[in-house]
């Protein structure tokens, strides 16, 4: 424990800090201003797996590691849709999950936004056409933004979520 604490004091953080990466810096600046102005510096996200293979979930989890550290942008993952501004939905939406997704959407207070994640969330991906699939997320709930990829990289996810802050600002 002491070793890690000392390292934390003495070494530079692993977080890909804004100054070292122009793209993240630009994103951080955009997020900071948009978020502060329109959403009071925070966006609460409820993630819903509506039938994905778990690949997208792993990359969304990775957003929390020291390299990406989404919390610095004012993004938070919350445990209940009732606390959420945004539903981050991965798909394809299976018929067995459609009702759960609809209910989660209904439980989210307005104003709310839905982000469909992954190629499957976009249109069902390689599972499209199956008897067990409703289709992409938009087949079940209205979608505001799509972040494609199989799975999208953490950086793509971050870029998409920060872009949403602008969209969200417009809608609010």
């Amino acid at each position: 424990m002491r070793k890690f604490l000392l390292e934390g004091l003495l070494k530079r953080p692993l977080t890909e800090a804004a100054p070292s990466d122009p793209e993240i810096e630009a994103l951080a600046m955009a997020a900071g201003q948009a978020a502060r102005r329109r959403l009071g510096r925070s966006l609460s996200i409820r993630q819903v797996d509506a039938g994905s293979c778990n690949g997208c979930e792993l990359e969304i989890q990775a957003l929390g590691n020291a390299y990406y550290d989404y919390e610095r942008f004012g993004l938070h993952f919350v445990a209940s849709p009732r606390h959420a501004d945004v539903l981050l939905v991965t798909g394809p939406v299976t018929r067995n999950m459609a009702e759960a997704l609809r209910r989660t959407y209904a439980a989210t207070p307005d104003p709310k936004w839905v982000v469909a994640v992954g190629d499957c969330g976009r249109d069902g991906g390689c599972f499209a056409g199956s008897y067990a699939i409703e289709g992409g997320v938009s087949a079940v709930v209205p979608v505001d933004l799509v972040i494609p990829g199989c799975p999208p990289s953490p950086k793509a996810l971050l870029t998409g979520l920060l872009a949403l802050l602008d969209v969200a600002g417009g809608k609010a």
Partner: peptide, 9 residues
């Protein structure tokens, strides 16, 4: 819940 019908595909 995540049954996607892989066998049929």
């Amino acid at each position: 819940y995540t049954h996607k019908g892989v066998d049929a595909l």
